[in-house]
Amino acid sequence: MPDSPDSPDSIHAPTRALRLGIAGPVGTGKSSLIATLCRTLADRLQIGVVTNDIYTDEDAQMLRAAGVLDPARIRAVETGACPHTAIRDDITANAIAVEDLEADFAPLDLVLVESGGDNLTATFSPALVDAQIFVLDVAGGGDVVRKGGPGIARADLLVVNKIDLAEYVEVDHELMVEQGRDARDGRPVLGLSRKRPETVAALADWVQATLVAHRDGTHEPVDPGPMAPHAHTDGTVHSHEHAAHTP
């Protein structure tokens, strides 16, 4: 089969965007976060979006309707009711959608992939995305962070969303953020509300910084899980959280 040196898929080729996954339970605000990022960064970055809806293309429609991005840059992928599979065990449909976006709108800086809202264990394969954000919200309850999971513990960024609602659901969002930091060995945690511009700016800064690190080769894609630390028969114990990414 013909191969091409300037394939969009070789890892640091110029047209390869930073692929950023957005995961987290249903309704925590993944689509809204993407809309916010597009609104904030669209004049600085070339962006594309892939959504993985479970039953409709609601997310894609919502984002197209938000008018924050050329609708053609927003693609919906059907996952056959397997949102977890589509970002982890069999990324084929998503990988193809990302590659097509990168080819159709080259050069893109950033491709955002929204996972179909699933549960606390769903995380992206590092073969699909270079970095991932895990989104929780205050309405899900202050104890969710303590329940943990690979996304909460090891995603590149943990977002505690809708902090403007914290007082109405009787959750201490600052405590949630703090517990997040504890659970994540110092990896970043961000309290976010689209109604609080300073938090939106902090999110945009994190994305920009990640893009810079991705471009200069200092960002290493990390797999958050699902593997827990485990023992080998030779007696060594290790976790795979720093397993290198194979391009």
């Binding site: 191969d3 091409s4 394939s7 969009p8 070789s10 084929t92 193809i96």
Partner: peptide, 23 residues
């Protein structure tokens, strides 16, 4: 054809080919 691209991805990996930019 979309399914075909999935198989092509796999074959590309097996043969260590550079993925071609298929549309």
């Amino acid at each position: 054809e979309e399914l075909g691209r999935g198989y092509e991805r796999l074959l590309t990996r097996l043969d260590d080919l550079t993925p071609r930019p298929v549309r």
